[in-house]
């Protein structure tokens, strides 16, 4: 079906992938032949994972999610969700979705929103009535349950959006910027909800620009840019070691940099630490030098890249990160 070259298939799944995408190409009509929002994306995700989807603006993240939800048709390649082609009603019944900048019906109360969306997913009213209070409590809007949504703040709407994505207890949840507009306490609550979902074996597909959150919540990450997968893997694989170590000492006021500079390359320093790239001999000499100067060593730890560093390095290395 597709003429696009096959990229590496993210091998996160075994045989029972929840999400399976192969050579996915999505074109949007426009000037000069249009835009390839997705350009031969292939990936597979196994159940029970919290999966992070990263990328700069216009990378194709939302398009990928919308293809999986059946909101965008006319694509090339293959896309399967829960073992069936995307867009099938019986599959969508098992899926929850919180879109970015979502809008819930302002004429409904929070309770009615959860009831409506639960019923649209096939859950009967009695089943929902037993669970709606719990979900309102978990996202922290139980007290405003019978207020119209149009009276809600952005953060409250975001919390309600999360509840509507989860109220029917789906097997897969797609969350697009779930903490957008939510205060720090609310963010912690959202993270807790996601952790609970993971414990319950629900697959979570997280799309966020807050890389620290992704780092805290996700098992696996795919970085997209210009419609193609740049990198995929576990957090440990993505945030590889830099080769540097941080030597932390028990007191300040010493010229740490002056003492260890002959042992290797200094990449950073502070009053009580120095970052050093050195081979084993160099590191040993640095330790000996510090001990010789009677400086107590508290810790020596290898320095890993942050996800943010890894992300920026990858995207800038590929070229422009501007939206096409």
């Amino acid at each position: 079906m597709s003429a696009a070259p096959t990229q590496r298939v993210a091998t996160i799944a075994g045989g029972n992938a929840v999400v399976e995408v192969r050579d996915l190409v999505v074109r949007y009509r426009g000037k000069a032949g249009g835009v390839r929002a997705l350009d031969g994306v292939s990936l597979a995700i196994e159940p029970g994972r919290v999966f992070g989807l990263l990328g700069p603006n216009g990378a194709g993240k939302t398009t990928l999610v919308k293809v999986l939800l059946g909101l965008v048709g006319g694509f090339e390649g293959e896309a399967r969700l829960l073992g069936a082609p995307v867009g099938q009603p019986n599959v969508r019944r098992r899926v929850g979705y919180l879109p970015e900048a979502h809008r819930l019906p302002g004429y409904l109360t929070a309770w009615q929103v959860l009831e409506l969306f639960g019923m649209l997913c096939g859950r009967d009213r009695r089943w929902l009535r037993a669970r709606i209070p719990m979900w309102l409590e978990r996202v922290g809007i139980a007290e405003a349950a019978h207020r119209k949504v149009k009276q809600y703040s952005k953060g409250m709407q975001q919390r309600l959006g999360l509840a509507q994505a989860l109220v029917h207890e789906p097997d897969v949840v797609f969350l697009d910027e779930p903490t957008d507009g939510v205060d720090p306490i609310g963010r912690a609550a959202v993270r807790e909800v996601i952790a609970e979902l993971k414990r319950a074996g629900t697959t979570v597909f997280l799309n966020s620009h807050l890389l620290m959150e992704v780092e805290q919540m996700c098992d696996h990450v795919v970085i997209l840019n210009r419609g193609r997968i740049l990198r995929e893997g576990s957090l440990e694989e993505l945030t590889r070691r830099t080769g540097a170590v941080r030597i932390e000492v028990g007191r300040d006021g010493d010229d740490l940099v002056g003492l260890v500079t002959v042992c290797g390359q200094i990449t950073g320093s502070g009053p009580r630490h120095v970052d050093l790239i050195a081979d084993e001999d160099g590191l040993g000499r640095a330790i000996d030098t510090l001990r010789g100067a009677h400086i107590p060593i508290r810790a020596i730890t290898p320095i890993r890249m942050t996800l943010e560093q890894a992300f920026i390095d990858l995207v800038t290395a590929q070229g422009s990160s501007k939206p096409r």
Binding site: P89, C121, Q164
Partner: peptide, 15 residues
């Protein structure tokens, strides 16, 4: 059909 409202509603298993 507004962006945000349509996404939420049309992702449900109703045509």
């Amino acid at each position: 059909l507004e962006r945000g409202a349509a996404d939420t509603l049309f992702s449900k298993p109703v045509s």
